[in-house]
Nucleic acid binder design. Structure first.
Lengths: 336, 336
DNA sequence: CGTGACAATGTAATCGTTTACAAGTGCAAC
DNA sequence: GTTGCACTTGTAAACGATTACATTGTCACG
């Protein structure tokens, strides 16, 4: 059954298209009798406004794209949920765009923004360079959430990764660990870099030894973290704690440790980052850093809406983080 | 910097908008000299075609929506990946729409289809009733993937859940388990129902006892599965194996078992379903049923494209599944 | 030189809306 | 009876593209 157009509704109701449009948009200057007959025609014809026509005319789409690398990275789940809620409050549809870190794929989604099929973008991650992002931000409403480039005039909502990492490692020191290792990723993403600095600073302030043997590089995968942990365990002086850059990598490290016949946290305490939903489930449950996903998502969306509305402000906001202690560092903790 | 329109490009190049459009669409009948000067103007003005205008005219959007309940259900990750790849091959943009099982939210996304801002929908899950889905399918190109209603004239791509569950439970029987329990969800989703039948049939064909004490109901969450397992363990005769309807619930069951001081798989073997990425990572790694996500996603997309193209066929396709044995049922297995 | 074919380009309708402006009606006030 | 106003409604111009059709120019051929 083909969809009716406003013209057909107008004819059916015996009025002009303008009147139909007024009814649709709740324009108050429509006589009750007319309104009823138009509404009746709309019903009968099963009419639905064509958004392409409407949006073309209104020069907006009320669609927001959320760019992320992959949906299986469920650190993003809560943030996205919050973005969606806040978006709906403002009358926007949220569409998730998974790029799998492929520049071509990301480019295709950016086209949608540039070519007016979306009103704005929230970046949870990106393959763009800082310069590219800067240029994009000059012409279109965008915002960075979580990961970000600094100084490119694009709003930022994130967490203080350096302080959060510092806090996590200080926790490991506080439970008496002396040789604290770090499993990270070799890229130049800001959160990675800052977590490394936080780790280093915590070692220093707690008078703990640092050596390059204590830092292992992996890719994001679980298996890769497993290998990195094997590497850490291969040295003569083994670490007694590990701070991994992500929960998934923490899980890999734990699995490896246990496979080698060592205890977690007995022999080696392990902490992760992000408080993903695997952390309470894992065996043992994983100590981690939680970000204020809810606040971050809502803030990102609000700021974006402002920008779409024409605001020139470029806010830079850090949100709270918190340490969540679980079995992988302290089996005696009392969980909520 | 405001975006130029085709009119401005035409003026800048000293031609008509028709010619610019021909250049954009690689229409062959454009003189080389003209083409160059138009391309030059496009460059200079940083022109990008407005998709609202184009799509309005062409009566299409080349956007496909994928409806799912939540992105943290990463069973869907591989399917989605495959949908995306296949979609790109056909020139479609894929947008993910998380409904969180909220009818209102889902309705909003459906509006986009009904109101011509998308060309089709792939349902990975839905809050629609069978009747609603049927009616939607009468007017718009849609397809069900994974979960589905039968007999509503909407194409289906899925896996034979009954046989897959049968296979999983038969595996537990084959390793010598006698009292095999089932953790499931109380809803009337088809995959749930079929997995329960498969479980029952496997018990019967292996001459194993069935009792209602062997079936525990939970919600989807990990914690809920944990509680269901506690429940199963509270009876005098404990099960020696559990088949859970999802990997996440299997993880909950394992955690509970271990917390009670029992061994997995020593005392209780546990199998899950979906081969989500937690399964190899978990401790112990989890035996599970893998679906042919890649084939399913690609098939769903292809069938949808056919439908958009006007095909009246209503295919119903089952894809292969396979048992993946891991430590949670058989520590002696040799993994790939 | 006249004719026809073909290539390159322009003109204008169209897609489905919204909305500024014009126009019509009825009524109260003078 | 005119005037002015409020209220409803219609007319038509956008929004930015595509494309059928018309037009123009060039050239080969008789």
């Amino acid at each position: 059954m083909l969809i009716a157009t406003i013209k057909e509704v107008a004819k059916a109701a015996g009025v002009s298209v303008a009147t139909v449009s007024r009814v649709l948009n709740n324009d108050r200057k429509v006589a009750d009798r007319t309104r009823v007959s138009v509404e009746d025609a709309i019903q009968r014809l099963n009419y639905r406004p064509n958004l392409l026509g409407r949006n073309l005319r209104l020069q907006q789409t009320r669609m927001i794209l959320v760019i992320l690398s992959s949906i299986s990275n469920n650190f993003h789940a809560k943030i996205i949920r919050s973005i969606e809620n806040e978006g709906r409050l403002h009358g926007y549809n949220i569409m998730l765009c998974a790029t799998h870190d492929d520049r071509k794929i990301e480019a295709a989604y950016l086209e949608l923004l540039k070519n007016k099929m979306a009103d704005g973008i929230i970046f949870l991650s990106t393959t763009l360079t800082a310069l590219e992002m800067k240029e994009l931000g000059r012409d279109y409403p965008i915002i960075q959430c979580g990961e970000y480039y600094e100084g490119i005039d694009v709003p930022i909502v994130s967490v203080d990764n350096e302080m959060a990492a510092f806090t996590a490692v200080s926790h490991l020191a506080a439970i008496g660990r002396k040789r604290i290792a770090h499993i990270t990723v070799s890229n130049d993403i800001i959160s990675t870099r800052l977590r490394l600095s936080g780790y280093m600073r915590a070692l220093k302030e707690n008078n703990l030894p640092y050596s390059e043997h204590l830092v292992a590089y992996a890719r994001y995968g679980y298996g890769s973290a497993y290998a990195a942990m094997e590497n850490l365990l291969s040295h003569d002086t083994k670490p007694d704690a590990v701070f991994a850059i992500s929960d998934r990598m923490a899980a890999g490290a734990i699995k490896c440790t246990i496979d080698k016949g060592l205890q977690v946290p007995g022999d080696i305490a392990v902490a992760g980052f992000d408080n993903t939903d695997i952390t309470p489930i894992y065996n043992p449950s994983i100590t981690t850093m939680s970000q204020s996903e809810q606040d971050m998502g809502a803030a990102a969306m609000r700021i974006l809406v402002e920008r779409i509305g024409g605001s020139e402000e470029i806010p830079f906001r850090f949100f709270k983080y918190s340490l969540i202690v679980r079995d992988s560092t302290d089996p005696t903790h009392t969980e909520q």
